[in-house]
């Protein structure tokens, strides 16, 4: 049994993961190149508008990550297999980082356009609350020793906390806000809005795709690391019992 475990932990990285990692790096480089050199300079805002491509993409990855957490949590509650819990945890960790990138890059964009680093606008508030919920998720897990209870509570909180994601998404569509609505709205009068030209749209789509691939790659790596950590923990327990 111990030998089997040892073999499993020596398991090499799957080919697909290697390919995916390489592809993500390449796609990200393309996105970076497009953002800097291909996308035209926005007339009114100038260079700072280039923040937009990664700002929105990071927000998208955050929302996607929290969706993965909620779904993985629900599957965990139904099946009680710890791998789903590890997936949910990995996804939260990545989501928290990307929402932080989203908030910080938004702040960098806001300074020259709105004239302030931060303003108490519904979109900014809801995004921050979302971030706080998932930081609370990580703190909740730290406070529980029993792995099964930790997984169960994590799943419950991940599902309950997910309500913040649609609220954040809808906040600029339902509430009065100064945050620009680039897609599907006539927020043209807001400071920071702009009309997207085809090259901009293409750059945006590539950024979105690149960030999504980066997310999947990171998630897979993180998940593998969590699995290893769990195996290590079990091996330790076994050795302690012997």
């Amino acid at each position: 049994m111990a030998a089997g475990d040892a073999n499993r932990s020596m398991e090499p990285m799957p080919i697909l993961l290697k390919v995916l990692s390489g592809f993500s790096v390449a796609l990200f480089s393309v996105a970076l190149y497009m953002v800097w050199f291909y996308a035209p300079r926005e007339v009114v805002m100038g260079e700072v508008q280039r923040v937009f491509y990664f700002h929105v993409a990071a927000g998208w990855v955050g929302a996607l990550a929290f969706l993965v957490t909620a779904i993985a949590g629900a599957i965990y509650l139904l099946r009680e297999e710890s791998r789903w819990d590890l997936l949910a945890l990995s996804s939260v960790e990545i989501g928290v980082v990307f929402i932080l990138i989203n908030i910080v890059s938004g702040s960098i964009w806001a300074k020259p356009i709105w004239g302030t680093w931060w303003t108490w606008d519904p979109r900014l508030i809801t995004a921050t609350i979302m971030e706080l919920i998932y930081i609370a998720y990580l703190m909740l897990r730290q406070g529980i020793d029993d792995p099964r209870r930790r997984a169960r509570f994590g799943a419950v909180y991940g599902i309950a906390g997910f309500i913040s994601v649609p609220i954040t998404f809808l906040s600029i569509r339902l509430l009065r806000t100064i945050h620009p609505l680039v897609f599907g709205g006539e927020g043209g009068s807001l400071a920071g809005s702009f009309n997207m030209e085809p090259p901009m749209f293409l750059t945006f789509m590539i950024s979105l795709l690149a960030f999504t691939f980066v997310f999947v790659t990171l998630l897979w790596h993180r998940y593998r690391l969590q699995l290893r950590a769990e195996q290590l923990e079990q091996t330790k327990m076994k050795l302690l019992l012997e």
């Binding site: 919920i133 906390g161 309500i163 913040s164």
Partner: peptide, 18 residues
């Protein structure tokens, strides 16, 4: 049911109930 119970409740509750 957690180790940090009194500290944890507001942190868990406030952002969700906001």
């Amino acid at each position: 049911q957690t180790r940090t119970r009194d500290m944890l409740l507001p942190i868990l509750l406030f952002p969700i109930v906001l």
